[in-house]
Design a protein around this nucleic acid. Structure first.
Lengths: 334, 334
DNA sequence: ACGGATAATGAAAACGTGTTCATTGTTTAA
DNA sequence: TTAAACAATGAACACGTTTTCATTATCCGT
């Protein structure tokens, strides 16, 4: 610690950097000035050792490239940075197998909180491995127009963000039906992923309520290429559809391109398409996608709020935040 | 440290986790087994404190959402993870002002190396603030078909990755000219960014050599919306062009959409378009973009190589790696 | 001017590791 | 069998902070 060579004791330096402590103002100013000159910054590793706070937030994703995830990481990083935290990024293996190896690996870095944007890791698993870090969970509850379920029964509770999808899906189906859609297909995301199955459940409920029967199931995995191929199959091998609801926007792009460039069908005249997420690319003129928007800033602010509240009150009961969805109308329905 | 309650001294535990040390195999096995049961992992913060290695690599980007950057971060994170490092992500402010604040902030986390994917921060600045971390620089040297310049004269040298663009640009121009392009426009990236100006310089050289005169300059900033608007301007206010070379793929998408949906021109029949990067989205059927590819895996491997070599030999001379570019032909030229 | 409260200060301990050094136990070479 | 080389081991220290705790300086009300 060079700063004290210039003036006085080390605790004074420590106090100079911690606002709430008591230190004579002029002394603090002097220390900060000298620190500035010497290009000194308190070492977070040492600080973490004694305080038990690393100011690191672990983020686990299967694929940073996916536009939705990259946009979420972007917003999250900005928000965390503003609160004095940093994003520690980890990637799961491509097969989505959330092996304990990655978690133990991550644990070594001692993050204060962990957010897993990966469908097959439950907070129970996270909590089991990371003893100190707080797991934050993104949850898609089953819901109706009346409200949503809180699955408090199945095991211990963890802090979670509830994403309410009923409103957006209801609006989307209404719009498609309004433009004459009768045979509605659902393009799924990754097999058994929470987001995809929740959307499917809600869609089934909404369709049944509106007398539209069951959706035609098309299995995808959130990627463009799979969506493209699955759509071609749906019309070449299967019986087609007059509207497709995709579990995410990138999938919707694959659907649109397959319809237009492979099957020579028109969107929205022949087939209507709706996506989910409202990513940056959705307003690009080639797609101009009508989609169910999850407000990213709102979602990320809620996540950060969860983390901060949990860290300031470690013993509080399970925390909860809720965000809504709504339809953004563009040009792929009518 | 709970592990030693189960058996013996703490140094034994330390050695059990460091393979190169000498410890009786059976003892090591026992310790690892007990550690496993107790869910114990060595604390990296404490380790960093004494060893001076945090195993953190700071990555600074202006915008994680940008497909090219998110793909680079993705590949980099995977590669670093395989080498026992973790990615620490930071975002510059939206105005790209690389204020010292962010650097000091980052310095507190003590990264072992820093890669700044942001055009206006030179390694000199990085090195000035981060005393311990190693700056890695992505450089786009001026080059001709004969080779490329090494600007060794201007100040001290830092480890760098040279991206050679001549080959790809030469192939792109040749292809466009082969299909009859005579009036070639260049859509720039962000003002004075290294990548964009290097591409412009090389393009000018190649065009001059082929008797194509000077490129028509169109100023962009690597984003879709700006590219779209600038292209409309070029044709409505300016005199148009019969080919556009964009500084990046996302910009090329904006050009294509403006041409097709706003100006009612055909690509490639009326106007040819070439991009730069070859991002995931470039093969999407709506664009099917012919573009100059930078091999991402190769590029990232080179970056990781630079970091590892530098950390294992801190006093070695400036390190250098080089990657090539090449044209990927799809459907936007002819 | 006095007693008591409060602010300011530094010494020492603690956080969980890696490293050096000296000691002990074990193998190898003659 | 003996000396020498080597493997295995633990005690003590160091890394750069924050946090008690005890001490001293300063302020306030009367």
């Amino acid at each position: 610690m060079v700063a004290r060579s210039a003036n006085v004791s080390r605790v004074a330096v420590s106090r100079a950097f911690n606002p709430h402590t008591s230190l004579k103002p002029e002394k603090r100013a002097l220390i900060l000035k000298v620190a500035e000159e010497l290009n000194y910054t308190p070492d977070r590793a040492a600080r973490a050792l004694v305080s038990g706070r690393s100011h690191l937030v672990g983020v686990i994703v299967p694929d940073v490239c996916s536009p939705w995830e990259s946009q979420e990481i972007d917003a999250l990083t900005t928000a965390l940075q503003n609160e004095g935290f940093a994003t520690l990024l980890f990637k799961t293996r491509t097969d989505l197998s959330m092996d304990a190896t990655l978690l133990t690996y991550m644990k070594g870095f001692n993050p204060d909180a962990v957010i897993a944007f990966v469908e097959n890791v439950k907070p129970t698993i996270l909590a089991g491995v990371l003893d100190r870090a707080v797991p934050i969970y993104v949850h898609y509850p089953r819901e109706t127009e009346a409200g949503f379920d809180r699955p408090d029964a199945d095991g211990p509770l963890y802090d979670r963000l509830n994403v309410l999808q009923y409103a957006g899906i209801e609006q989307a189906v209404a719009l498609m039906q309004g433009y004459g859609a009768k045979r509605l297909a659902y393009l799924t995301g990754v097999y058994r992923s929470g987001a995809s199955t929740a959307r499917e459940d809600t869609l089934r409920k909404v369709m049944a309520d509106r007398g539209l029967g069951e959706p035609i199931m098309v299995v995808g995995d959130f990627t463009y290429d799979t969506a493209y191929a699955a759509t071609v199959d749906l019309f070449r091998v299967g019986d087609g559809a007059d509207a497709v609801f995709a579990a995410n926007d990138v999938g919707a792009f694959g659907v649109i391109d397959a319809l237009r460039h492979e099957l020579k069908l028109r969107v929205p005249e022949d087939v209507k398409v709706v996506g989910f997420d409202d990513i940056e690319q959705s307003h690009w003129k080639s797609y101009n996608l009508t989609t169910v928007k999850i407000d990213l800033d709102e979602r990320v602010r809620a996540l950060v709020r969860l983390i901060l509240r949990r860290l300031s009150k470690p013993s509080a009961g399970a925390l909860e935040e809720t965000v809504q969805t709504r339809l953004v109308v563009r040009g792929t329905v009518g």
